[in-house]
């Protein structure tokens, strides 16, 4: 299986603890978490608020707004809208704030990678 040799597995001699403690990595971690955690909490709260309303505020949800369209249907459709919006927002955030810094760290590590014998190899030559 000739091509299996090209697959990179765990780069054996990277000091991950050192990488983890670099300012650059800490910044990446902070940027990632400061986006995904609040966002996850926000959409889960909005979703459960909706479920609770549908469950315990049937009268409110059944209020007709336009023709046969009631508040429940509108809020349900808004769940679709918010899902699409958060998806788009996250993609643009990752492209701008996460990918460049992740690529930089990756390049740095893979550029200083060592093979099993301790010889330095570049990312491309592996």
């Amino acid at each position: 299986m000739g091509h299996e040799a090209q697959e990179t597995d765990a780069p054996a001699f990277v000091d991950f603890k050192e990488v983890q403690s670099t300012e650059q990595f800490q910044e990446l971690r902070k940027r990632h978490r400061s986006f995904v955690f609040p966002m996850a909490i926000a959409f889960l709260l909005w979703y459960f608020a909706y479920v609770l309303l549908a469950d315990y505020a049937v009268g409110f949800m059944s209020t007709k707004v336009w023709g046969n369209i009631n508040i429940g249907l509108i809020l349900g459709l808004l769940q679709f809208v918010s899902t699409f919006a958060i998806t788009g927002w996250y993609v643009s955030y990752s492209n701008r704030k996460l990918d460049p810094i992740a690529a930089e760290i990756r390049h740095e590590i893979e550029g200083h990678e060592f093979d099993k014998h301790g010889n330095r190899v570049s990312g491309e030559a592996k």
Binding site: H3, E4, Q6, E7, T8, D9, A10, P11, V14, F16, K17, V19, Q20, F25, L28, R29, H32, A102, I105, R106, I109, E110
Partner: peptide, 19 residues
Amino acid sequence: AEMEVRSLTGVGAEKATNH
């Protein structure tokens, strides 16, 4: 540390196989 660094940066993740 390895898991955290790899998960966020993609270091050492398996690439596509070329046929």
